[in-house]
Structure formats: structure tokens, C-alpha cells
Design a protein around this nucleic acid. Structure first.
Lengths: 178, 178
DNA sequence: CGAATATTTCTGTAAAAACAGAAATTAATG
DNA sequence: CATTAATTTCTGTTTTTACAGAAATATTCG
């Protein structure tokens, strides 16, 4: 598939963004491609469109699937796997936040809890102890927030925060989960 | 300065977390050290405590200063620079979000706006055009949310979201910005 | 102003991550 | 059940990032 100029630049930018947030560039690019394509694509087509090795696509798709961002579908009369992603930005965002939480936040909470129940903690300065406790508490508050927020539709959340009035008309028309 | 076991593990874990989020490990470690220390430290002491080169500290401190996470202070009778960070997790979080926004989100918004005002956009599939518009809109909503939220104290936000009742007593006692 | 101390920048090396291509495995079809 | 197609895993290379140590610069003090 031949990429049109804007799509290509979108995908490249997305890959760049991924790098800055600890996401493999190719993984981010593939996701952006599937997102813009809005239809299932097979591995070879993804590879040739992005100019990366077939094996690289395989690995990256596996990664995207582990985030539940990509699912495999089959087209009739074609034995190859085809891959697609959601076109709902809010849904995608929720999946990414959920994945990050499971992989990074929850383990950190476990580590910090481990510190607090470790006898060695007493050897630390009082201030340091306090800050470790506050860090854990803060992360727990954050995750509770995010749980609450992700349960809502964006519009509801905006109303709760009283943002609605401040947003221009442009922001609202064509909202993806209306 | 000799690190006590829990502090050392906290700092190492923080460095690890940083890596996963696109932050240089040493940068994250230095910030964690200053956070736990809760007092200004000079570069040589930071270097020896963490076991990294003096030059590495210099570069990393510069990075942390560009995020406004670390400031330079001077102690009387000592001509060396000393560095300290806030011990308020909420304040630190706000600075990090603000920095990420300026460095990554705002430029992305600019890129997407550029696409929407580019005549080449017409050459793209209708669906792709729509998704580019929705992506921009979503990011703008997100930044508006975050602006609103960061203006509040965490307790206020929790009340707004109706979370308070669900949180155990533990979560609330000793909150850092009470 | 010159010596001493502190700090930053530069440069080459080392470590880590990403990746292509080959080889191996798995699945589908006749 | 053998052949072909599709996919995954493995291995070596390339690219990128992180970093130490040296050199250069800046600052402070007598």
C-alpha cells in the first residue's frame, strides 16, 4: 500500500512520539498505520508499506496484541492473518492506560508496599520514610482517579470538571464517542 | 553519602521506571536521591553516592533543571553549587506533566493542526481525515482536562470525582498537600 | 591578577535497543 | 501426508543512547 503524504507524516510522527514515551518506534508506527487504514491489514502489506522487515512486524504485532490494541481477524478465502485496531481514540487511550498500569504502576505499588513492611525501613531517616509513604499514597490516589475517569465517557468527565463552557465549538463537534 | 538499603532500592527502582517512560536512568536516579535526601547535595556527593561520573551528574542536573524539578542553592561558607528538589509529590507531578506537555504534546498538536490546514489532506481517505481530526480533538480535550486538574489540590479533585468515600483511611492520613 | 576550585562541554567508548535476514516452526490445503 | 504458505524465533549487525574521562571554561578568593 502506498502511503499518501499526510498519512506518512502522521505515522512517522507517531513513531517519534512513541520513542519519547518508551514505546518502540516500529510498534507505534504499525499501530498508527492500522489506525489510519481503518481496515485489517496482513503482515506483508504492513511491512512493505512501512519499509520494515517482515519479522519486525511479527514481533511488533505481538507486542500490540499484548496491549490488546490489535486483534487478529480472518478474511474469507484468505488464510493469512489480518490485523486491525479500534478507530475509537478514547477506547485506545483506555487500553494504553490500562496496560501501562498493569506493567509499571502496579509493580511499583508492590515494591513500595514491600518497603513499608520491611524492618529495614526503620534504619532510614524519618523524612525519607515519610516520603516513601507519601509516594505510595500518591500513586494509589492517581490510579484510583484514573480508574474513575476511564469509566466515564469523555463528555461526562468534561461536564464534571466544568470544562464544557470553556471549549470552543470546534472541540466538540464530531466527538468520537458521541 | 552511604545509602541505606531501602533508599538504595527506591532509587534503583525509580531509575528503572524512568527508563520505561523515556527518562534517562541516571536523571531519574538523581532526582530520587535528592527527593529522599530532602536536603541540598553537591555534585561530587551525588556522583559518589550513586557511583556515576561527575560529568554525568552535571548533564543530568541540567536536564532536571530544564524540567524545573531541581534548583541550585548555596550554603554559606561553601562555594560549590548544591542542588535540591521539592519534597511535595503533587508539586513534582505537576512539573513533570507540564514539562511533558510542552515538549511533546504541544508540538504534536501543532503537527496535527498543520495537517488539517494542508491542502494535501484532501488526497487522504475520508476515514483517515476524520481520524486525524478526532485525534487532534482528543489530545486537545486531554490537555484541557489536565490543565483543569492540575489547578486543583488532590483532595478537591477526589471529592469532585466522588472518590473520597471509597478510599480507605490509610490513603488520606498524612496527605502531602493537606 | 593569578592560583585554586568548581563546573561544563567535548570526545571516544561501552551498553542497550532495534532491527534485518535466515532458519525453524506451525498451519492449511489438496 | 506431503507440499506450500504463513508465521515466529533466533542470530548477528546496525543504530542509538548513555556514559566516563579528559579537556576546556568559568568562578571565587587571596
Amino acid at each position: 500500500m502506498e502511503l499518501k503524504p499526510i498519512s506518512e507524516r502522521f505515522i512517522l510522527h507517531w513513531g517519534e512520539m512513541g520513542s519519547r514515551w518508551g514505546v518502540n518506534r516500529t510498534v507505534a508506527q504499525i499501530h498508527a498505520l492500522l489506525y489510519l487504514a481503518g481496515r485489517p491489514m496482513e503482515a506483508e502489506e504492513i511491512a512493505s508499506t512501512l519499509g520494515v522487515a517482515r519479522s519486525n512486524v511479527s514481533t511488533s504485532i505481538k507486542e500490540l496484541q499484548s496491549w490488546k490494541l490489535v486483534r487478529t481477524v480472518h478474511l474469507k478465502g484468505d488464510r493469512r492473518d489480518h490485523f486491525e485496531t479500534s478507530t475509537d481514540v478514547w477506547e485506545l487511550f483506555k487500553l494504553i492506560v490500562e496496560g501501562r498500569r498493569q506493567r509499571e504502576i502496579d509493580p511499583t505499588i508492590a515494591v513500595l508496599n514491600g518497603f513499608l513492611s520491611n524492618p529495614d525501613l526503620a534504619a532510614e531517616d524519618e523524612g525519607a520514610q515519610q516520603r516513601i509513604r507519601e509516594t505510595l499514597e500518591f500513586i494509589q490516589i492517581l490510579t484510583t482517579w484514573s480508574d474513575e475517569m476511564l469509566r466515564l465517557k469523555p463528555e461526562t468527565l468534561m461536564k464534571m470538571l466544568g470544562i464544557g463552557a470553556k471549549l470552543s465549538q470546534t472541540f466538540r463537534k464530531g466527538s468520537s464517542s458521541e
